[in-house]
Design a protein around this nucleic acid. Structure first.
Lengths: 243, 243, 243, 243
DNA sequence: CATGAATGAGCCTTCATTCAT
DNA sequence: TATGAATGAAGGCTCATTCAT
């Protein structure tokens, strides 16, 4: 077989796999793992169920591929954000920006993460897929740690009070939590929320201020930073509105 | 029929309904909505499936009753916490304590909340059940608002920067997010977490400090407060360890 | 609930279970275990597949029930045969008769036994069903041993050469083998067989003679014995023809 | 196209067909007909499924080819055995030896024969393949008949009682039956069997003795014969143990 | 010729819901 | 009113067979 043919086949295979993952993501996010059926997926991609099984060895394997593909995208965004040129707090802000950007793209992504909590889930996914997932998770976390350490070194952030890992997890927590809470319909009603992203970013800032990460929001105007983040790092972030 | 008989029947009916909800909660939390089967439940309560359908019009209706009963319990805890005697920040801390207490009791409760996000879920639940759910959510939120307003009035918290609703939602967000993130296996591994509750409370404190809610953690030792919260409000909180 | 109602329900349940086993036997014998489908069975019994699962916990469990029901019938026949009044060799002949009777009723029964060879089969059947199967197998074997020991005691059969178990297994082997071979179409053609039963009984006799089990066929006319076996023990054996 | 090329292609084709049959035999014997998948086979032979279909018109056709190839091997063994130099009873013993040899090589071969009992199986196999199967079955049977006739002619065996075909079928029956029964787990347990081959040969001898085939086991020591059979005819029979 | 992606019918099994008793 | 047998539509998954390349 000619190399060209081989590579065309490879490309087609890859494209089909992406097609499957894309449609699976949509269905998975809207129905949850158990409510997501391979029959629906097959109908949606206009291929037969058998074809899906030529790419993924089980429903769990496919779901993990979906999760990993999102995770990879998040890791890419975080790495870009961590490269932002500026004070450490500005770089942390860029990571927060990246996280918001991710949330806009995958508003229900946390559903997917929840499904991965059960042990039996992981047992049914392929070894290779598990490995890739762990790798992408690591990349995301490392980007955050990098910025935290930059804060330590610049003296913007105290080394005494919290470890780098605690700070990273706090950043992740407030972001995830704010995202979830600001989308709960009852919360939106009770608290009169209309702009989820604003809530998320505001809470991120409160937390970083609480850590004493300089410069505090009270001492510095980050509006210009946000504009730079947007134009230098995330020109595709159409959701971002200047105040 | 005599009124007494009627009321005995009513009481029996109510008791059976509680029995069903109690067992359903256990199964729902451990298997998730789709993994929870009415056959298992019927076996567990030692009534038949038909009997379940005399109390709940669908599986979704029952699940909503479970969620509402948990929500009610949470609202009860929050109301108790809000009544704590002390500075406003201490009362906020009591609410955080209540939230941790709830999490220890229902560690997988967020799974249940997630399942309720799909639209089809609500359509299959009864009107009455939906109403009760909203009511309990309101009670929880109002307890938080009450403490925030106390902070405003005492001058412990600035009225200028954030609205009471924003503050309440920030508190809820950091709690939920920290709870979730501190239970993700990868996070625990990457960040070396072993005590989820400590992470949750720490992040709550960082946030309140970030808001400038007095007295800041840096200026005040809350260890004694925690002991009082425990002994005066939540004597049943066996998970609480003095440091 | 009145006892009558209870017992009527029980009877109905038992009858349905027998209906299922009867139809399953037919399908199992004609298509083999793997070729036998629960869809076909459901169509055949005119109940839904779900109903089958209210009686049997898996396809394997059902198949084992089929095998056990046949085994029980065989054990019943053997026990009746072992009680035949006469010389020990006549009683052995009665057991051979019983075996032929069983074969006429279940000509493809050995298909079923073959399917039970795989380990995974047994794992999927219920504990209770496995127990019953072992019990029926034991009954069959004990009937054979009883007659062999009667031969020993009467001095019709040498104790020196073979153990009782070896003799029993030889009897079973020649019967099973003759049954199978005399039904292979090619064999029937090559050897010009038209009466399978005659072949089976002939081979049984050759074997017993080979063991020196008195009285040898050469020394005694068993035709009258066969008539007695038939009239005293198996009046229902319509396949039996006087020569 | 040059004849040489043609014949080379033919040879390659034949070699591939043998490769397929060899691997198919292994899989078929270990998983049974329905449990044997063409995907597994294709992986095992390192050709594609399409290629298999260029040699066999269906799965059944292939399975029949496997059965026929085993049958051919058995016929070869029987023909070698029939050529043993010695008394007729010794030659019969050599055939029994051949049969045991075959069983050791293909312990699950009877599974394959069982699968061929269903009518639909034969309908899906090719005419040519069916013809070859019948041919190999004939060779096996003729070898047995040859030895039986030698017994008649030598006066070792009575012509009066049984026809040559009946004797041949009896030999085949006791062998097959003993093989099967001595492998049934329950039987092994109940009768305390540990050496299947011993059981098979013992029962063969009992049967031949029962026919009065001279010299009877009681009158002659066949141990030396067995050694000669092994060294002169089946030097490859490593399973054979001198007692 | 060889390939292997695609098919689609079929498999066993589960379960929310209904309804005659 | 309580029951639980019956249902039947899915569910995830397999695999013999075909056919464009």
């Amino acid at each position: 077989m000619l190399p060209q043919t081989q590579s065309r086949k490879d490309r087609e295979r890859k494209a089909r796999e992406e097609l499957i993952v894309d449609h699976a993501r949509r269905l998975l996010l809207s129905h949850g793992f158990q409510g997501f059926s391979l029959d629906d997926l097959a109908r949606s991609i206009e291929y037969s169920k058998g074809t899906i099984y030529q790419h993924f060895e089980s429903k769990e394997d496919l779901a993990l591929a979906v999760a990993t593909s999102a995770l990879k995208e998040r890791a890419d965004l975080f790495e870009r954000a961590a490269r932002f040129q500026g004070k450490s707090r500005e770089r942390a802000r860029a990571i927060g920006f990246a996280c918001c950007h991710f949330m806009v793209a995958y508003p229900d992504y946390f559903h997917v993460e929840m499904m991965m909590k059960s042990q039996s889930f992981w047992e049914k996914a392929s070894e290779e897929r598990r490995r890739q997932n762990a790798m992408q998770a690591g990349r995301t976390f490392r980007s955050m740690l990098e910025v935290v350490h930059a804060g330590f070194e610049a003296g913007d952030l105290s080394r005494e009070r919290l470890s780098a890992e605690e700070i990273a997890i706090a950043m992740a927590s407030v972001t995830v939590g704010s995202h979830i809470m600001s989308h709960v319909p009852e919360m939106r009603l009770l608290a009169g929320i209309d702009d989820s992203i604003r809530i998320v970013r505001q809470n991120q800032d409160l937390l970083l201020d609480g850590m004493g990460w300089k410069s505090l929001l009270a001492d510095f105007d980050y509006a210009a930073t946000d504009l730079r983040i947007r134009s230098e790092i995330f020109p595709e972030a159409t959701w971002f509105q200047t105040p």
